[in-house]
Lab assay of single mutants.
Amino acid sequence: QTQEFDNEEEARKAEKELRKENRRVTVTQENGRWRVTWD
């Protein structure tokens, strides 16, 4: 699953929550947008 964010702060917040659920999370930056991908 993927979700896009406008800034790193929001993306990192989402990453932190997903990691609490023991998910594999990848955060990438593309064209000024932050993308959080998880399984």
Score class of each variant (00 low, 15 high):
residue 1 Q to T: 12
residue 1 Q to M: 13
residue 1 Q to I: 11
residue 1 Q to S: 11
residue 1 Q to W: 15
residue 1 Q to D: 09
residue 1 Q to Y: 14
residue 1 Q to R: 12
residue 1 Q to A: 11
residue 2 T to D: 05
residue 2 T to V: 13
residue 2 T to Y: 15
residue 2 T to G: 06
residue 2 T to L: 08
residue 2 T to K: 05
residue 2 T to F: 15
residue 2 T to A: 08
residue 2 T to R: 06
residue 2 T to N: 06
residue 2 T to I: 12
residue 3 Q to Y: 14
residue 3 Q to G: 03
residue 3 Q to C: 13
residue 3 Q to K: 13
residue 3 Q to N: 05
residue 3 Q to A: 13
residue 3 Q to R: 12
residue 3 Q to S: 07
residue 3 Q to P: 02
residue 3 Q to D: 05
residue 3 Q to H: 11
residue 3 Q to E: 09
residue 4 E to I: 15
residue 4 E to P: 02
residue 4 E to G: 03
residue 4 E to V: 15
residue 4 E to K: 03
residue 4 E to C: 14
residue 4 E to S: 09
residue 4 E to A: 05
residue 4 E to R: 03
residue 4 E to T: 13
residue 5 F to R: 00
residue 5 F to V: 01
residue 5 F to E: 00
residue 5 F to M: 02
residue 5 F to S: 01
residue 5 F to L: 01
residue 5 F to P: 01
residue 5 F to K: 00
residue 5 F to H: 02
residue 5 F to A: 01
residue 5 F to N: 01
residue 5 F to I: 01
residue 5 F to Q: 00
residue 5 F to W: 04
residue 5 F to D: 00
residue 5 F to Y: 13
residue 6 D to I: 05
residue 6 D to G: 06
residue 6 D to E: 11
residue 6 D to P: 06
residue 6 D to Q: 07
residue 6 D to F: 06
residue 6 D to R: 05
residue 6 D to L: 08
residue 6 D to T: 06
residue 6 D to W: 06
residue 6 D to C: 09
residue 6 D to H: 06
residue 7 N to P: 00
residue 7 N to A: 04
residue 7 N to H: 07
residue 7 N to W: 04
residue 7 N to T: 15
residue 7 N to D: 09
residue 7 N to C: 08
residue 7 N to L: 07
residue 7 N to F: 07
residue 7 N to R: 05
residue 7 N to M: 05
residue 8 E to D: 02
residue 8 E to P: 03
residue 8 E to G: 02
residue 8 E to A: 03
residue 8 E to Y: 07
residue 8 E to I: 04
residue 8 E to R: 02
residue 8 E to T: 01
residue 9 E to V: 09
residue 9 E to R: 08
residue 9 E to C: 07
residue 9 E to N: 08
residue 9 E to H: 11
residue 9 E to L: 12
residue 9 E to M: 11
residue 9 E to K: 08
residue 9 E to P: 08
residue 10 E to F: 04
residue 10 E to W: 05
residue 10 E to V: 03
residue 10 E to P: 02
residue 10 E to M: 07
residue 10 E to Q: 09
residue 11 A to V: 03
residue 11 A to G: 01
residue 11 A to S: 02
residue 11 A to M: 02
residue 11 A to I: 01
residue 11 A to E: 00
residue 11 A to R: 01
residue 11 A to N: 00
residue 11 A to W: 02
residue 12 R to V: 04
residue 12 R to W: 07
residue 12 R to T: 04
residue 12 R to N: 03
residue 12 R to K: 06
residue 12 R to Y: 08
residue 13 K to M: 11
residue 13 K to L: 13
residue 13 K to P: 01
residue 13 K to I: 13
residue 13 K to Q: 12
residue 13 K to G: 06
residue 13 K to T: 11
residue 13 K to S: 09
residue 13 K to W: 13
residue 14 A to Q: 08
residue 14 A to I: 12
residue 14 A to E: 03
residue 14 A to Y: 15
residue 14 A to T: 06
residue 14 A to V: 14
residue 14 A to G: 02
residue 14 A to K: 15
residue 14 A to S: 06
residue 14 A to D: 01
residue 14 A to R: 15
residue 15 E to I: 08
residue 15 E to M: 08
residue 15 E to F: 10
residue 15 E to V: 10
residue 15 E to D: 02
residue 15 E to P: 00
residue 16 K to I: 13
residue 16 K to S: 12
residue 16 K to W: 14
residue 16 K to V: 13
residue 16 K to E: 11
residue 16 K to R: 12
residue 16 K to H: 13
residue 16 K to F: 14
residue 16 K to Q: 13
residue 17 E to P: 02
residue 17 E to Y: 08
residue 17 E to D: 07
residue 17 E to S: 09
residue 17 E to Q: 13
residue 17 E to I: 12
residue 17 E to H: 09
residue 17 E to N: 10
residue 17 E to R: 13
residue 18 L to I: 04
residue 18 L to E: 02
residue 18 L to S: 03
residue 18 L to R: 05
residue 18 L to Y: 07
residue 18 L to K: 06
residue 18 L to T: 02
residue 18 L to P: 00
residue 18 L to G: 03
residue 19 R to K: 11
residue 19 R to M: 11
residue 19 R to D: 04
residue 19 R to P: 02
residue 19 R to E: 08
residue 19 R to S: 09
residue 19 R to Y: 06
residue 19 R to I: 11
residue 20 K to V: 07
residue 20 K to R: 14
residue 20 K to Y: 08
residue 20 K to H: 10
residue 20 K to M: 12
residue 20 K to P: 03
residue 20 K to N: 10
residue 20 K to S: 10
residue 21 E to G: 11
residue 21 E to R: 12
residue 21 E to I: 13
residue 21 E to V: 12
residue 21 E to H: 14
residue 21 E to D: 12
residue 21 E to Q: 14
residue 21 E to K: 13
residue 21 E to M: 15
residue 21 E to S: 13
residue 21 E to P: 06
residue 22 N to F: 15
residue 22 N to A: 08
residue 22 N to S: 08
residue 22 N to K: 09
residue 22 N to M: 09
residue 22 N to L: 07
residue 22 N to W: 15
residue 22 N to D: 06
residue 22 N to I: 04
residue 22 N to P: 03
residue 23 R to S: 10
residue 23 R to F: 15
residue 23 R to D: 06
residue 23 R to W: 15
residue 23 R to I: 14
residue 23 R to K: 13
residue 23 R to N: 14
residue 23 R to M: 14
residue 23 R to A: 13
residue 23 R to Y: 15
residue 23 R to G: 08
residue 24 R to F: 14
residue 24 R to S: 12
residue 24 R to V: 14
residue 24 R to Q: 10
residue 24 R to K: 10
residue 24 R to G: 06
residue 24 R to D: 11
residue 25 V to M: 02
residue 25 V to I: 06
residue 25 V to A: 04
residue 25 V to N: 01
residue 25 V to G: 03
residue 25 V to L: 03
residue 25 V to P: 05
residue 25 V to W: 02
residue 25 V to Q: 01
residue 25 V to K: 00
residue 25 V to C: 05
residue 25 V to F: 03
residue 26 T to F: 13
residue 26 T to R: 09
residue 26 T to D: 05
residue 26 T to N: 07
residue 26 T to Q: 07
residue 26 T to P: 00
residue 26 T to C: 08
residue 26 T to L: 09
residue 26 T to Y: 13
residue 26 T to H: 09
residue 27 V to T: 04
residue 27 V to A: 02
residue 27 V to Q: 00
residue 27 V to D: 00
residue 28 T to I: 12
residue 29 Q to T: 09
residue 29 Q to C: 10
residue 29 Q to G: 06
residue 29 Q to A: 07
residue 29 Q to N: 12
residue 29 Q to I: 10
residue 29 Q to M: 13
residue 29 Q to V: 12
residue 29 Q to K: 12
residue 29 Q to P: 06
residue 29 Q to L: 12
residue 30 E to Q: 10
residue 30 E to H: 12
residue 30 E to W: 10
residue 30 E to R: 07
residue 30 E to D: 07
residue 30 E to A: 10
residue 30 E to G: 04
residue 30 E to K: 08
residue 30 E to P: 02
residue 31 N to I: 03
residue 31 N to A: 07
residue 31 N to W: 04
residue 31 N to T: 03
residue 31 N to K: 07
residue 31 N to M: 07
residue 31 N to H: 07
residue 31 N to Q: 07
residue 32 G to Q: 04
residue 32 G to A: 04
residue 32 G to S: 04
residue 32 G to T: 04
residue 32 G to V: 02
residue 32 G to L: 04
residue 32 G to I: 01
residue 32 G to K: 03
residue 32 G to P: 00
residue 32 G to Y: 03
residue 33 R to E: 02
residue 33 R to H: 06
residue 33 R to W: 07
residue 33 R to D: 01
residue 33 R to G: 04
residue 33 R to N: 05
residue 33 R to V: 12
residue 34 W to R: 01
residue 34 W to N: 00
residue 34 W to P: 00
residue 34 W to V: 00
residue 34 W to M: 00
residue 34 W to Q: 00
residue 34 W to H: 00
residue 34 W to K: 00
residue 34 W to L: 00
residue 34 W to E: 00
residue 34 W to S: 01
residue 34 W to A: 00
residue 35 R to V: 13
residue 35 R to P: 00
residue 35 R to W: 11
residue 35 R to F: 15
residue 35 R to N: 04
residue 35 R to Y: 12
residue 35 R to G: 01
residue 35 R to H: 06
residue 35 R to T: 11
residue 36 V to F: 02
residue 36 V to P: 01
residue 36 V to Y: 01
residue 36 V to M: 03
residue 36 V to H: 01
residue 36 V to T: 01
residue 37 T to G: 04
residue 37 T to I: 10
residue 37 T to L: 06
residue 37 T to A: 07
residue 37 T to Q: 10
residue 37 T to D: 06
residue 37 T to M: 07
residue 37 T to E: 11
residue 37 T to K: 08
residue 37 T to W: 14
residue 37 T to N: 08
residue 38 W to E: 05
residue 38 W to R: 02
residue 38 W to Q: 03
residue 38 W to L: 05
residue 38 W to A: 08
residue 38 W to P: 03
residue 38 W to Y: 09
residue 38 W to T: 07
residue 38 W to K: 02
residue 39 D to A: 08
residue 39 D to W: 15
residue 39 D to G: 10
residue 39 D to M: 11
residue 39 D to Y: 15
residue 39 D to N: 09
residue 39 D to V: 12
residue 39 D to T: 11
residue 39 D to P: 04
residue 39 D to I: 12
